[in-house]
Design a binder for these strands. Structure first.
Lengths: 131, 131
DNA sequence: CGGGATCCGGCTTGATACTG
DNA sequence: CAGTATCAAGCCGGATCCCG
């Protein structure tokens, strides 16, 4: 048996610069990726619904984010050739698993923000006694 | 009981542009934040150990990342005034909880990369029939 | 060893305008 | 409605030099 630092013998290691899993992790946890997956975890949404839900995202970045997530197989795009066009985005089974974990992280953070904010105040106070 | 889109009545909502939780989420899930927390989840590490473990990070970005995580109360910095100096970084209890969730996400992704890669090939093939 | 300060190129991002 | 195209700006991130 080989000596290894990782606890499992997975073929993909996000800590390696060259591993493709790092790119996917960045799509998932990126600024807009995380929020997009979080929003879609609550249910299927159309483009502009998503845009409103993810406060602050631009059209371009939302489109770009959705493309990356669709390419990675986390989001499914359902376009209906009607007029006006209607496009729904929803999570794939894989996307749902990822979003589940992401949501656990987000809720953990949201629930502990008081501690975070308190820590920030302590940190800042200690560094800025008398400017 | 109020009608709400969110499933819980938390005071912090990461979907709002102005909520401080969004900033913390970005520190945690940011390019280097996620990998740094992941690395520290395996145990306490010194600056340059961390630098080697998180393949590709520069001194500046690692320092910057560690400051943000320390300020948010996720990482504890233990400096020993020896010569040469020795500084150890370790997760706080709060940081451990966050890292736990993060690790679940990372391992989920690493374990499903074959699906992701297959999806990418399908996506690319469908868009590039004959350049 | 463990950083801080500075410079600077380029990728990411945000407006805006346009299309189907 | 659901995007694409274009372009300028700005911040990210790397390289370098420095210090305790």
């Amino acid at each position: 048996m080989q000596e290894r630092t990782a606890e499992q013998d997975l073929p993909y290691d996000v800590f390696s610069r060259a591993c493709p899993s790092r790119g996917t992790l960045e799509h998932v946890t990126g600024r807009w990726g995380a929020l997009t997956l979080g929003a879609l975890h609550e249910g299927s949404l159309r483009f502009n619904e998503l845009r409103r839900r993810v406060d602050g995202v631009s059209e371009k970045m939302l489109a770009q984010t959705l493309h990356a997530l669709e390419r990675d197989g986390l989001v499914h795009r359902e376009a209906q050739p009607t007029n006006p066009p209607r496009v729904d985005y929803e999570l794939t089974p894989l996307g749902r698993e990822v979003a589940e974990r992401l949501k656990a992280l987000i809720q953990c953070l949201e629930g502990r923000m008081d501690e975070v904010l308190a820590s920030r105040e302590r940190y800042d106070a200690q560094r800025m006694p008398t400017p």
